[in-house]
Design a protein around this nucleic acid. Structure first.
Length: 271
DNA sequence: CAGTCGCCCTGCGTGC
DNA sequence: TGCACGCAGGGCGACT
């Protein structure tokens, strides 16, 4: 699944490819996404409407249509988008036909994603309005995170993955940011010093920005809109590197489980 | 309430 | 080879 850098990479490419295009038809081939996919309603809503903007909010992609209304897409763990004219492939669950004959195709083996049409800003707000601050926004500051951490016994790794605290940070970048900040993942959130909190906020921003610059991280399914893999994978310092040497200090990378998710860290340089 | 667990679903790698 | 099992970028509801 794509985390913030992967969704941002896709959204940027999508913006270049589809803004100004008109949707001629929507096809859905399954109803069983994370939220039921109502193809008939979506088709009726988007048909002959043009796309005026593409945005990302948290891990959601928002296609704003003319005359109001928006299509919201979440890629779950294994979702991807592509634009082409090729025949249907396994796990292609939805298709937006475009006016120049190409198709925007939603593919998702595990069906953890969603596609939803929001006719009004109010409906959009129900879906996106409760999301917390964007990590790359100026409002995500050490003071903000410190306030959220103040009374939390939650391990800091679990804490920064909570979408009600800060959005977009998933399992890869939580481990990566903690390594960059030199903070051990099992530390209770409230135990971080002001300096550590500041380092962590900076590390989160840095790792996300760097990953966006390199087109995101491909573990298995993630692809850019072009079909290419992300190039940040080779720059990961701890994620999926259990047993290997830490690139920073030469110590061994360890893997543990927190809240049911794998965490990777270096025992030597994270304290 | 904070925190963890199981579940949604499919595919892949591992080990027997 | 084949099967069983565990695990995988997310997120939600149901527990303790």
């Amino acid at each position: 699944m794509p985390e913030l850098p992967e969704v941002e990479t896709i959204a940027r490419a999508l913006r270049r490819a589809v803004v100004g295009r008109t949707l001629t038809r929507f096809y859905g081939y399954t109803e069983k996404l994370r939220q039921p996919l109502d193809a008939a309603t979506i088709n009726r809503s988007v048909k002959n409407r043009s796309i005026v903007a593409v945005a990302r909010r948290a891990k959601f992609i928002v296609l704003t249509l003319d005359h109001g209304g928006a299509v919201v897409i979440h890629l779950g763990m294994t979702g991807s988008l592509r634009i082409d004219k090729s025949p249907r492939r396994a796990h292609d669950h939805a298709v937006f036909a475009l006016d120049h004959g190409e198709k925007l195709v939603y593919n998702d083996p595990r069906k953890f994603g969603l596609i939803k049409f929001c006719p009004t800003d109010a409906e959009l707000k129900i879906l996106l309005g409760k999301l917390a601050v964007e990590p790359l926004a100026a409002a995500f500051t050490p003071a903000y995170l410190a306030a959220k951490n103040a009374r939390a016994a939650t391990p800091i790794k679990t804490q920064i993955m909570k979408q009600e605290i800060v959005v977009g940070v998933g399992n890869i970048y939580a481990s990566e940011a903690l390594h960059r900040a030199g903070v051990a993942p099992e530390r209770p959130a409230k135990s971080l010093t002001a300096a550590e909190t500041a380092a962590l906020v900076a590390a989160i921003k840095d790792v996300l920005k760097e990953s966006i610059k390199h087109g995101g991280t491909t573990i298995s399914d993630y692809r850019q809109l072009s079909g290419r893999e992300g190039n940040f994978t080779r720059r990961l310092r701890v994620y999926d590197r259990a047993g290997l040497d830490c690139r920073h200090c030469g110590g061994k990378i360890r893997k543990i489980t927190q809240a049911g998710r794998s965490t990777y860290f270096c025992e030597k340089c994270q304290v």
